[in-house]
Write a protein that binds this DNA or RNA. Structure first.
Lengths: 161, 161
DNA sequence: GAAGAATTACTCGGATACTGCGTGTCCGAGTGTAACGGG
DNA sequence: CCCGTTACACTCGGACACGCAGTATCCGAGTAATTCTTC
């Protein structure tokens, strides 16, 4: 069980767009070249971000993607949900109701949610909460704290200025 | 991204062994019938629990599996790690070092860990902590609070007494 | 020289293959049990 | 009646297929910029 690489790709791409600044759209090919990613597959992930409202897409020549809102308003959870979907980590199949044990239990025993599901849900809530509490702007600030010239490097790499 | 169903199977199987009580080993076929699971596949999961030290296996006729230690000493994290492995949820491929952007960064910028990785790691730590803080005995108690006769039902379903 | 239309080049978007892991199944090695025969 | 031996039945354990989601790719629809023609 692990998150797809699309999550990492999306995070870095959003950060690069923020460092680049300005409202100019950037095409997929350029974003992919920034970290040597597959352009076609990155495009697929960015489309998910558009559907989730994190990016805006501009079609046609000189088109591309740009941030739909500042990174302060984008949490890590937003990115994960946009790319991976909002399905829970732990899926309860209610196996407690089946088999020789489940059949011996009165229906009243199933009115309350499965204890295993509840316990696993607590952990998942903690995970989601921690993701929701961190914005991509926080991550950007943390990165800038160690190497302050990222904005300049990104602009140079993208041939802006 | 979701946990395999082996986790749910393992949790309920451990709980059933606890409700059953006594040190007698229970064969896979009986445990699987308890919740109408695939015996062969359940066996595969139980072998993982043996490797992790949560279960003991008894070979030969009248053999099977029994708890290696009381559920008070088994956390949800132990079960998840035993079944799914201890690999992290978010795998950082260090894409920041590649491509037109990564190549413009001095090596000194990479001495500090990736900010994205760090942020995602915080959330994962919260998840693992929440899992580690809950024991299977807690889950058992929570279940007993709603329907107190589980031990009796499990013993009857397994034909003990 | 300016305006407008046709052309061109570029980009997104979704439809289409491929791969790896989770899922599911099967058979053999090993062991305790039970039956059997001999003392 | 008791004990040793033999055969058996049962169980775990790992090796072997299958299917689906994640991964990766390609081509068409649509749009803005550009160019060319005309006034």
């Amino acid at each position: 069980m692990r998150t797809g690489k699309g999550v990492e790709w999306a995070m870095h791409t959003l950060l690069n767009l923020a460092w680049l600044g300005g409202g100019e759209p950037v095409p997929t090919a350029q974003l992919a070249a920034g970290h040597d990613l597959s352009p076609s597959y990155l495009n697929k992930q960015l489309q998910q971000l558009v559907k989730a409202g994190l990016l805006e897409s501009v079609p046609g020549a000189r088109g591309g993607f740009r941030l739909a809102r500042p990174l302060e308003a984008v949490s890590l959870l937003d990115v994960v949900v946009a790319v991976e979907g909002d399905e829970p980590l732990f899926t309860c199949a209610e196996i407690r109701r089946c088999g020789t044990i489940g059949e011996r239990c009165p229906n009243a025993a199933f009115t309350r949610p499965c204890a295993v599901r509840t316990a696993m849900g607590r952990a998942e809530t903690a995970w989601r909460k921690a993701l929701a509490e961190q914005s991509l702007a926080d991550v950007q600030a943390s990165s800038d704290a160690h190497s302050a010239d990222m904005a300049t490097r990104v602009r140079q790499a993208f041939g802006v200025d």
